[in-house]
Design a protein around this nucleic acid. Structure first.
Lengths: 158, 158
DNA sequence: CAGCAATGGTGGACCCGTCAACTAAAAAGT
DNA sequence: ACTTTTTAGTTGACGGGTCCACCATTGCTG
């Protein structure tokens, strides 16, 4: 028979009040929604969309830069980009002065898909942001940053 | 050649300012940290930990109740629970009055692992929460709720 | 009570993210 | 110049999560 309370004297915190859990659920729901919209509007995956935005913003980028900016796993970027290359969404060329780096840019097809997904995604973003006041938005990002700082701190202690 | 800007007149919002992206990254980091701690302290996975907490909190539960409370995919709960049953972390018995439902409870082994992971996980939770003021915490959960409400609203429109 | 819808739970297929090992190329140290 | 370290990118393997179809059981409705 199991003990009644394995942690004597410990107050029980419901999982719904845990930052990790709530954040995970929110993240999953947001990602699922974005994925659905992208699929319907353009056939893009969420990661493809993010990469397209990165490239579009910079005009031309490298994988390592995207990894630095977004902290996404480099393997994932590499694979996604490879797939996008095969689909003709992006074009890549080797840097002359450093043969390790590949510059990637949008093709017309890539730009077209970006364009197709844009309206719905933009509207979604606006609605999400507009559901919060300016202060709330700021506070939200601020809090996220604080939590990430604490994660860094804890990881540094190891 | 790709167009310079596929969306004429659209202001470019950096991905780092997008709720979905920031939330996803935070969630991934929190989950990774929790997973690491659990692995080191008890060998539990994050999902196992969550399920153990649920069962511990209720004393005895069913899968469907956990699904209702946490909104986790029921397939995942089923699989995780199956594995935990094999490992002897939980015991289950069929409900007499409704043969579809299985009540699950902790075994001594399950309670023991919960106990082992508890201190570190509790300290982590406290540090995370203490890195925010009471107001910030409240605001954070509040904001999450608002965003989820907006997701619900948007999904309802489909 | 017969038939149909709803509920609890399971299993398969598939995708995505992560880790680690590896190649190629360049930069830094000696 | 020669060795070592660092950086860019690739690939394989693996685990976790999600979607969907499905079975069993129970509740509901005519």
């Amino acid at each position: 028979m199991a003990k009644d309370n394995p942690i004597p004297g410990s107050e029980l915190v419901p999982i719904q009040q845990m930052i990790t859990f709530r954040t995970a659920r929110l993240s999953a729901r947001l990602a699922a929604q974005a994925a659905r919209i992208l699929k319907e509007s353009s056939g893009l995956t969420l990661m493809q969309w993010r990469i397209l935005i990165q490239i579009h913003g910079k005009g031309s980028t490298t994988q390592s830069e995207m990894v630095r900016l977004t902290q996404v796993d480099k393997a994932q970027v590499s694979r996604t980009l490879k797939h996008m290359l095969e689909q003709g969404l992006v074009a890549s060329e080797v840097n002359e002065s450093d043969h390790r780096v590949h510059f990637v840019r949008l093709t017309d097809k890539g730009a077209d898909l970006l364009q197709r997904a844009w309206p719905t995604m933009t509207e979604r973003r606006k609605r999400l942001h507009n559901s919060l006041s300016a202060k709330e938005q700021e506070a939200f990002f601020d809090t996220i940053q604080k939590i990430e700082a604490m994660i860094d701190e804890m990881e540094d202690e190891r």
